[in-house]
Simulated scan of single mutants.
Amino acid sequence: MATLEDKLSGEKLQYYCSSSEDEEESNNAVAESNQNTVKKSHRTTSNTGPKGVVQDWQLYKQLEEQNRDENEKQKIALARKFCLNASSTREDEERKLNEEFDAEFSELMSEEFLMRFQKQRIAEMMKISGHVTKFGKVLTLNSSDEFLDAVDKEDHTITVVIHIFDTKYSACKKVNEFLEPIAADYNTIKFCKINSGVAGMSRNFNANGLPALLVYKGKELIGNHVRLTDELSDDFFQSDLESFLIENNVMIDKSLYQ
């Protein structure tokens, strides 16, 4: 049984003296505490001094570069968006203009508009050319000189139509007959007729080329229509001859300006 002294000695010894293991643990605890203190100190003071300033500057420039890149990306994206919108708007406007142009062009090209325009232009031309010589009948040419004068001495704006005929051919007679009312209706055109013998035509031409219509303007031959029966047939009417002259641009349909 332990005495009071032993107890006191033992408690004092336990309290005052520690084992080597306890001492090591204590030393480790102190070292760890010191290390933590050093780490804390390092963290709070890492950006101080010349090296810290350089590191801060480098970090600042890196962040600045990142922000600049990000801003550039945003600007490019925004510019692309605006370009797409602008392009889309421009294409819409162009498409709308094209549609309006197509509609107006279709209206202009309508048969009704063309007829109206043609009548208006003819009326204007007739008004401007009110001083133009009016003929109204078929003139008979009695010599080759009259033939030449009918062409060469006429105003360059006048269309001259000369029928070369021979009365022994029925088709020639019909052309002479039908030209009279046509000349009256289209009195700004100079219609003439001349016998093939007076004009000095050959027998071969008479047999194969009559009836013939020669069209002149400004002293130039602009139409040479021989053997009209090939176009009109042997059994033709005044309307057929008139349509033939209109289709071959010898005269303009009178119905357009009436």
Rank of each mutant, 00 (worst) to 15 (best):
Ala2Asn: 06
Ala2Ser: 10
Glu5Thr: 05
Lys12His: 01
Leu13Met: 13
Tyr16Pro: 00
Tyr16Met: 03
Ser19Glu: 05
Ser20Phe: 02
Asp22Arg: 13
Asp22Val: 14
Asp22Leu: 11
Glu23Trp: 02
Glu24Gly: 06
Glu25Thr: 09
Glu32Lys: 12
Ser33Ala: 15
Ser33Val: 08
Gln35Ser: 06
Thr37Asn: 07
Lys40Met: 08
Ser41Arg: 10
Ser41Asp: 09
His42Ala: 12
Arg43Trp: 00
Thr44Gln: 10
Thr44Pro: 00
Pro50Thr: 06
Pro50Ser: 12
Val54Ser: 07
Glu65Ala: 14
Asp69Ser: 15
Ile76Arg: 04
Leu78Phe: 06
Arg90His: 05
Glu93Pro: 00
Glu94Ser: 12
Lys96Asp: 11
Asn98Thr: 11
Phe101Met: 11
Phe105Trp: 11
Ser106His: 02
Met109His: 05
Ser110Met: 07
Glu111Thr: 13
Glu111Tyr: 10
Glu112Gln: 14
Phe117Val: 06
Lys119His: 08
Gln120Phe: 14
Ala123Ile: 13
Glu124Leu: 15
Ile128Gln: 13
Ser129Pro: 02
His131Phe: 11
Val132Glu: 15
Val132Gly: 07
Lys137Gly: 03
Leu141Trp: 01
Glu146Ser: 04
Leu148Lys: 12
Ala150Gly: 08
Asp155Gly: 07
Asp155Ser: 15
Ile158Tyr: 01
Ile162Gly: 01
Phe165Trp: 07
Asp166Trp: 05
Asp166Tyr: 06
Tyr169Cys: 03
Lys174Glu: 04
Val175Asp: 00
Asn176Gly: 12
Asn176Phe: 03
Phe178Lys: 02
Glu180Gly: 07
Pro181Met: 06
Ala183His: 05
Ala183Phe: 07
Ala184Gly: 01
Asp185Val: 07
Asp185Lys: 09
Asn187Gly: 13
Lys190Ser: 10
Ile194Arg: 01
Ser196Gln: 03
Gly197Pro: 00
Gly197Arg: 15
Gly197Ala: 15
Ala199Asp: 05
Ser202His: 05
Arg203Asp: 10
Phe205Val: 11
Ala207Asp: 11
Pro211Cys: 07
Pro211Glu: 03
Leu214Ile: 10
Val215Gln: 02
Lys217Pro: 02
Ile222Val: 15
Leu228Gly: 00
Asp230Asn: 13
Asp230Trp: 02
Leu232Ser: 04
Ser233Asp: 13
Glu242Trp: 00
Ile246Cys: 04
Glu247Val: 08
Lys254Ile: 14
Lys254Gly: 10
Lys254Ser: 15
Ser255Phe: 05
Ser255Cys: 04
Ser255Val: 09
